[in-house]
Write a protein that binds this DNA or RNA. Sequence first.
DNA 1: AAACTATTTCCATGAAATGCGAAATAGATG
DNA 2: CATCTATTTCGCATTTCATGGAAATAGTTT
Lengths: 115, 115
Amino acid sequence: MTSETLQRALKALSDPTRLRIVEFLSGVCCHTAAIDEHGGVYKAPTASEVCCHITGAEKITSTVSHHLHELEAAGLIRIERQGTKMLCTLKPESFETLAQEFQRIAKGETPNECC
Amino acid sequence: MTSETLQRALKALSDPTRLRIVEFLSGVCCHTAAIDEHGGVYKAPTASEVCCHITGAEKITSTVSHHLHELEAAGLIRIERQGTKMLCTLKPESFETLAQEFQRIAKGETPNECC
DNA sequence: AAACTATTTCCATGAAATGCGAAATAGATG
DNA sequence: CATCTATTTCGCATTTCATGGAAATAGTTT
């Protein structure tokens, strides 16, 4: 993971609303049923549902829509269209990578030019 | 780690300059010698040295001073006075904790009220 | 105390980000 | 095609934040 990628991910997560979205997507238990491209059943909340849980609004707000796309641009979540709806899922790999980055920083394994 | 603590840490790390400071402190190899409270020798860069590495300035700037205290307030680094100088060290435990938080998010172990 | 070093505080400025409502768009359905 | 739903784009007001210079402070040395 490059320094810029790490930077973008951390910036995306620095906003309270976006962090709450991520926490929510990490632990969702109320989902919409859907069928993936292989015919399998999977579950993922729609943008509206995410918004509902975060803000209490009944429909998705422009603000939450923006935050969702910000998280997607940072590579932290996936957004896929299902008819008129947008399904949101966390990308666990990205968070695994972030965890490794912090391990690296904690362990002092950061490459550093000497003086 | 509470959600607010995580929030503060991520916000502190969302700034490019602060992230560079952290990366630098994580991998420092050019230090100032110092004596800790038990008489042991330890090494840590001064605020000026951090600033020099980050900005190229010869003296510490108000901007870097501000960033250092921001990182300290977020619990990510330690700053201790040594005469007129301030020595800066990373708090590896904090980054270990952050790594665990991301593991938790990746694994979906986030506690979430159900509907 | 005066002079010097390292750092901090204060203040102003400009850039970027947030949040929101209204209009626009995309896809589904009658 | 008209309509309905879900989402996005746009424009705007407001806030937050990084930055930098000048003055103030803390500690050291003579």
